[in-house]
């Protein structure tokens, strides 16, 4: 295993049996790694399996096959997971798309943010230190101290997402997995949250698996991007390399379809179309250059 990789996913498969005859291959044999302090963007359209990747890494499903390595431990192995549970849970945090569902409506903002730290035995019997930490976290995500006693129902979508972010950085994790954290927010609020992510990441230096369907958002934030379709990673490259020099026809089609706020360009551009049913599911991710991988089928 690569020494600098903090999270490594090897041949991850996550199948869901629907009926006797039908098994949905939500994630089908994908591998990637995230280095310390890296922001990895995973993009794909709805149904491509990107959220399932996040949930599988967090251990919310029993893997069909494959391995997940975190800081040198094979956490997909239940035995290894159990013996390192506290350490893993402290260092891996997740942010969900729907903040209304992710926050307990009957807990105050203070208790929501405190909960993971209590679970990790931080600030035991030291209420003042805990409160000081919570005030600091609220300040870092741009919320006033007065929010401590509020309930999620009293907050707007952007504010709730800020609380979810404060909760996730409280335990000072090594990696944060964010599953479409800004998809349900307004444009101006999206920009606020993206800038917040960028600042926090620079300050704390956590690695970040950022899942989105919006390519422009991923380009803004990520160092490395993976493009998913039908449970496969079709192309993976360093961000600028992928956007300047897309190789897979699906990536090209996806890039051409992203609307840009520039009428002259928009009216003249040619949109490429790709028929996803043409994708051959046999093949593997091949390294084409030091920073560029593409899914190739055997000829």
């Amino acid at each position: 295993m690569n020494q600098t990789a903090i999270l490594e996913v090897k041949n991850l498969k996550q199948y869901f049996p629907v009926s006797k005859h039908l098994t949905v291959k939500a994630v089908d044999d994908i591998s990637f790694q995230i280095r310390k302090g890296e922001i990895f963007g995973l993009v794909g359209e709805s149904g491509s399996g990107k959220s399932t990747v996040a949930r599988s890494i967090m251990g919310l499903y029993q893997l069909t096959d494959g391995e997940v390595w975190f800081q040198g431990n094979k956490i997909s192995d239940p035995k290894v997971f159990r013996s390192n549970r506290r350490d893993i849970q402290k260092n891996m945090q997740i942010i969900f798309q729907d903040s209304a569902a992710a926050l307990n409506p009957r807990m105050t903002v203070r208790n929501i943010i405190a909960e993971p730290m209590q679970a990790c035995r931080m600030f035991v019997k030291n209420k003042e230190a805990m409160d000081a930490k919570i005030d600091k976290l609220l300040d870092q995500v741009g919320l006033a101290k007065s929010f401590r006693s509020r309930y999620p129902g009293e907050l707007s979508g952007g504010q709730r997402q800020r609380v979810a972010i404060a909760r996730s950085i409280g335990t000072n994790p090594d990696i944060i997995i964010a599953d479409e954290p800004i998809a349900s927010l307004d444009v101006s609020i999206q920009a606020q949250i993206l800038t917040l992510f960028q600042n926090l990441q620079q300050e704390y230096g956590f690695a970040f698996l950022f899942i989105a369907h919006d390519l422009s958002v991923v380009r803004f934030l990520s160092n490395t991007v993976g493009v998913m379709l039908h449970g496969k990673i079709l192309e993976m490259a360093e961000t600028e390399e992928l956007f300047q020099n897309p190789l897979h026809p699906y990536t090209k089609a996806l890039l051409s379809a992203v609307p840009v706020a520039d009428p002259i360009y928009e009216r003249s551009k040619k949109i490429l179309y790709y028929d996803p049913s043409k994708l051959s599911l046999t093949g593997s991710l091949q390294q084409l250059s030091p920073k560029h991988w593409m899914f190739c089928s055997p000829k």
Partner: peptide, 21 residues
């Protein structure tokens, strides 16, 4: 509004958010 759009075409992405709600 224009500044808050992370433009795909922009190389050096700097995002200008509108403060408040």
């Amino acid at each position: 509004l224009l500044g808050a759009q992370p433009a795909l075409a922009m190389k050096t992405g700097e995002l200008h958010s509108i403060p408040g709600m």
